[in-house]
């Protein structure tokens, strides 16, 4: 009998605290991308609502309920996390398991936006990028997904293989923010 052990992308790298900011790895969960087939988005949305109480997210938005999150993840795509996808969803959408594809971290603390301003060319001001807002964007040459979880808390996702670079880059930005005092 073979026994394989699991390792998370940031297992040896996090958590990390610099000044008022903390970077930690989000506990792994099932993550599945849903891409509705032509003409199926409404049906998918209805199925999602029936199953999870969550409707298909508008671009750049996410919704969450009872530990299940539905995150807009790009063109014709949303990321369902926190629950295994209902088999019936595949009638309406292509389902792809991405539970292992991404490094998922959380940056929290006063000045989190200032740290991200050193990493991403996107507008994350609280007046523009509110709780639950999400963006697919560049993070120091990496394809990223950034979501605001709270007033000073963001979820950051990059490809799993880039976890080490992500941690280094975010750490450098955290240090720069801390040094400004």
């Amino acid at each position: 009998m073979v026994e394989l052990s699991a390792k998370t992308p940031c297992a040896d790298l996090l958590p990390l605290t610099v000044g008022a900011l903390t970077l930690s790895e989000v506990a792994p969960t099932v993550m599945t991308t849903l891409s509705p087939y032509e003409g199926c988005r409404d049906a998918l949305s209805a199925a999602l609502e029936a199953r999870y109480g969550l409707r298909w997210p508008k671009p750049n938005r996410s919704t969450a309920k009872a530990g299940v999150r539905l995150l807009w993840f790009g063109r014709d795509m949303a990321l369902l996390s926190g629950a295994a996808p209902d088999r019936g969803l595949s009638d309406h959408a292509a389902l792809v398991d991405q539970s292992d594809g991404w490094a998922v971290v959380q940056l929290s603390g006063a000045g989190a936006e200032d740290a991200l301003a050193r990493l991403c060319p996107v507008d994350l001001r609280p007046s523009v990028f509110k709780r639950g807002h999400t963006a697919r964007c560049d993070l120091r040459h990496m394809m990223a997904s950034i979501t605001r979880l709270g007033p000073a808390s963001f979820q950051i996702m990059v490809f799993r293989s880039m976890a080490e670079t992500l941690v280094e880059d975010v750490k450098t930005a955290m240090e720069a923010v801390a040094a400004r005092g």
Partner: peptide, 13 residues
């Protein structure tokens, strides 16, 4: 065409 594509390079070792 009714087709959906996504990269799974990182999902699989």
């Amino acid at each position: 065409w009714n087709v959906r594509i996504s990269s799974v390079t990182e999902q699989w070792a």
